[in-house]
Nucleic acid binder design. Structure first.
Lengths: 158, 158
DNA sequence: ACGAAAAAGTTGACCCGTCAACCTTTCCGT
DNA sequence: ACGGAAAGGTTGACGGGTCAACTTTTTCGT
């Protein structure tokens, strides 16, 4: 078996470790896996359930649409997750008198308990991520992420 | 409806835009979506198919296991993708006389054509990502990604 | 007042990516 | 030589995430 790097005209080009999208994909997957492990260990919430509860924790009441807009996650995913949270008794919904299309969502006492069980661990992990670098590096990194996002938003550029 | 930030004890804490995992998730998703669009427009490969072909482009012959190891992608995913590429006639497999467990994979002429159709666009996009920042920022960012990955690898830390 | 367009949310189908279980082949220790 | 462990790869099931299609309600232009 010849696995030399000399076949075809191709080479691997830039090494994988220097490909931005590859690095980000690996890291994203690892971060999600870590968060999932933490959540499983501390109450059993799924990652998206946690994310929705973070938003509900910040507001007395809100709507699925607002959660989707604020988090920029897909409304289909939010819809399903809200449904699962309601079924689990962690979220309750009441109709919105001013707009029949939407429901007002809020966390139940059970929801708050589950959220509070996971929160210290999720926030500790978040702090660890931020503390892995100093302020300057963090700012440079966030600026880099902004720049990458701008390129990614060029819809038909390539 | 009260969506003020003063409910419960909770607040949103750190704004979403400053949460590393959130920012990375958004960016990862956008980059994948962009790549998927480019691939769809230039030959119709799926993202994982493209990734496998990148590896096959670099070697005369290789095995699914090696692709999985080199890319660090899940062997189940590679297995399925290789299967789909073989069915599409873009990859061919021959048995490995020295090890009956594995097959030697290589790109077909069709595969090379499809790969070559997509490659300039995918590489242009990759270059644009890297060129969105200067060398120093890139190095700082990659170092930051290394640091984040190290935290993400702490299995039971939180 | 009316109707078209937009918005809120639901559901189906699909891809990415993972983990577990499985079967066959190979490796390795005794 | 033998058998258990490991490796290569396959398949099932599942969660994250998306897009499309759909229904009902609301908005908005005429």
């Amino acid at each position: 078996m010849d696995t030399s790097l000399a076949s075809r005209t191709g080479q691997l080009g830039r090494p994988l470790e220097q490909r931005v999208s590859y690095r980000l994909a690996r890291l994203h997957v690892k971060l999600n896996a870590q968060a999932t492990r933490i959540l499983r260990r501390h109450g059993g919430l799924s990652l998206v359930q946690w994310r929705v509860l973070v938003m509900l924790n910040a507001f007395t009441e809100t709507t699925a649409g607002q959660v989707a807009r604020m988090t920029r996650f897909d409304k289909a995913l939010i819809s399903r997750t809200v449904k699962s949270l309601i079924q689990a008794g962690l979220v309750k919904a009441r109709s919105d008198d001013s707009d029949q299309r939407q429901q007002l969502l809020s966390m139940t006492a059970s929801g708050a308990r589950v959220f509070d069980a996971a929160a210290p661990h999720m926030y500790a992990r978040q702090d660890a991520l931020l503390d892995s670098m100093d302020t300057t590096q963090r700012e440079v990194m966030f600026d880099a992420l902004d720049r990458l996002e701008e390129v990614a938003d060029r819809a038909d550029a390539f």
